[in-house]
Each structure stands twice: as structure tokens, then as C-alpha cells.
């Protein structure tokens, strides 16, 4: 029989959200406290770190929310089972 379990922390969406969120925090802080005039000048007055950081934070939050609301179910399917027809339809 096919075993099912949720992927949990191994869900790639949590990994993506964690990395992007961490980058977001670092960039936002850098944008707030560590932006030199030369850097602002280089991008025509656009605070790149701040905006990119905020964008990453929003993205990470959305991804984590998606992973939480729709957990990934991992089925461990063997070859024999794959050949047998009636697999349960699951919404992925």
C-alpha cells in the first residue's frame, strides 16, 4: 500500500521561504542603517537594499503561508503500485 505522510519541514516551500526571509531581513536592515550616499547615487536615489529586502520578506511570508495552508503530501509509491491503475486522485 502507498504510504502517505506530509513533507513537513522538508517541504521545499519552507526552505525557500526561510532563505528568502533571511535575505529579506539582512537587506532591509542594511537598507535602513547602512546605505551610503554613493550607493544611493549609483542607483539614482533608489534604495535598492530596502526595497528588495521588503519584497523578499513579502514573498517569503506568502510562500510560508502557502506551504502551511496546503501541506505537501508525499506518497511512497513502488513500481508495482504505479502499474496498478486506481491511484487516489490527489489535488497537486
Amino acid at each position: 500500500m502507498a504510504q502517505t505522510k506530509t513533507a513537513g519541514a522538508f517541504d521545499v516551500r519552507y526552505i525557500v521561504a526561510a532563505l528568502m526571509g533571511t535575505y529579506g531581513v539582512i537587506l532591509t536592515i542594511l537598507g535602513l542603517v547602512n546605505t551610503s550616499d554613493a550607493e544611493l547615487e549609483a542607483a539614482d536615489g533608489f534604495n535598492v537594499n530596502l526595497w528588495a529586502g521588503l519584497g523578499l520578506l513579502v514573498f517569503a511570508a506568502a510562500f510560508a503561508a502557502w506551504a502551511r495552508l496546503r501541506p505537501l503530501v508525499v506518497r511512497e509509491v513502488t513500481d508495482e503500485e504505479r502499474e496498478a491503475a486506481g491511484r487516489p486522485a490527489d489535488d497537486r
Binding site: Y23, I26, L27, L30, G31, N34, T35, S36, E39, A42, A43, V48, N49, A52, G53
Partner: peptide, 11 residues
């Protein structure tokens, strides 16, 4: 090199 500040450069 020309546009990105340190931080975003790392990304």
C-alpha cells in the same frame, strides 16, 4: 558592479 549596493550585491 555599477548599480548594486553591498547586500544586494551578495544576493
Amino acid at each position: 558592479r555599477d548599480l548594486l549596493p553591498n547586500g544586494m550585491l551578495g544576493v
